[in-house]
Write a protein that binds this DNA or RNA. Structure first.
Lengths: 194, 194
DNA sequence: GCTGAAAGCGGAGCGCTGTTCCGTTTTGTC
DNA sequence: GACAAAACGGAACAGCGCTCCGCTTTCAGC
């Protein structure tokens, strides 16, 4: 994937050089999300980046925007894996299962991302929206294919399945005995026709 | 410094009258949980009750304790419904399904309770513990009965199922289109032997 | 009744958040 | 180099949980 827009010497919309620089620095500093979770204090990220609070808010009006920017390419990779899996797997349902596994892996390896994705009152609306925008269509295609192949029953909206899977992944880090994968597997089993 | 020597001041088992009164007043004020969710500011509950912050923290060291005290009888009712349903339903699996429905109803009608129950970092540990203490044994008995009747596959720990169901109920209020019941039904379907 | 120690109370205060606002600095252009 | 616009930095404000300690209430023993 290309690095954030500008290659060579064409600044996209006339952003100033220092602004572009700071945006990159902020994205790099957002790596604290990896270890401290997406709830890491804004001040900390600003300090990590060596910029002031004003700067961070100007570039990313909500924490959600920063999180989206930071994880965007991973979400995109997950979205792109959908069609590939559908083409290569033994059956549409197998593809769906593999894709959901990918999604679950993504969520459980990011502290608190699943929780943040629910967006209920936490100001993570942009994150929620981005996940839905990118992944629901992919999920829909996989579901449709599986329905068409007679492997699962129709009637489950993709956004509902996504939401459910996301919800099941919440709190994995707070309880090492809890493994969302087993429950997600049960959920998918419940979809099967028969 | 207390002059320790007095004749037997009996340290009474019972609390002082004003303390008992305030505890009742606080429990009544905790009704703000119903409309404002379990995240309602402590200050607000204190104000509602007409007491100071110190009082509320003395009676309920964590917000979790207050929530537990407020919803305790409803949780107990849910726990007690387990054996009843098992005795009256057509089959153990039907009883399990009915009981889970009861649990889901309880969770979705309390703003944010499901989220709080996850206890990941929110200081809701006592709430989490109480739910588990009271409901996991009930769930275990229902699961065992259904396994014994050959209706579901063995291998799902009750605490995992509880957690999964609880997780699926998160955020129902933030998205009216999301209905956890359908997904919970799928999950239970996934348990079935066959 | 009184009385005084212990139990309980109240809320100011601390530390931590997110977010805004505006004087100062940097940048790019003429 | 000058100058306006863009961007910056962090002090300041608001809201939160929680603690701490001087003041008030209770109640057994007289």
């Amino acid at each position: 994937m290309p690095t954030a827009g500008q290659s060579g010497k064409t600044p996209p919309r006339g952003k100033r050089a220092d602004a572009q620089r700071n945006e990159q620095v902020l994205l790099a500093a957002a790596a604290v999300f990896v270890n401290s979770g997406v709830d890491a204090p804004i001040r900390r990220i600003a300090a990590e980046a060596g910029v002031g609070m004003g700067t961070i808010y100007r570039h990313f009006p909500t924490r959600s925007d920063l999180v989206v920017a930071f994880y965007r390419h991973q979400v995109d990779a997950c979205a792109q894996a959908g069609p590939t899996l559908l083409a290569e797997a033994d059956s549409p349902f197998a593809a769906l299962r593999a894709w959901v596994d990918l999604f679950v892996d993504f969520l459980v390896t990011k502290h608190g991302l699943a929780k943040a994705m629910q967006s209920d009152g936490g100001g993570f609306d942009a994150l929620h929206a981005y996940f839905l925008d990118r992944l629901v269509p992919v999920c829909a295609r996989l579901l449709d294919a599986a329905v068409e192949a007679g492997e699962i029953e129709p009637g489950t909206p993709p956004q509902e399945l996504m939401r459910g899977v996301g919800n099941l992944c919440i709190g994995r880090n707070s309880d090492p005995d809890y493994d969302p994968r087993r429950l997600v597997a049960l959920l998918l089993r419940g979809l099967r026709a028969g």
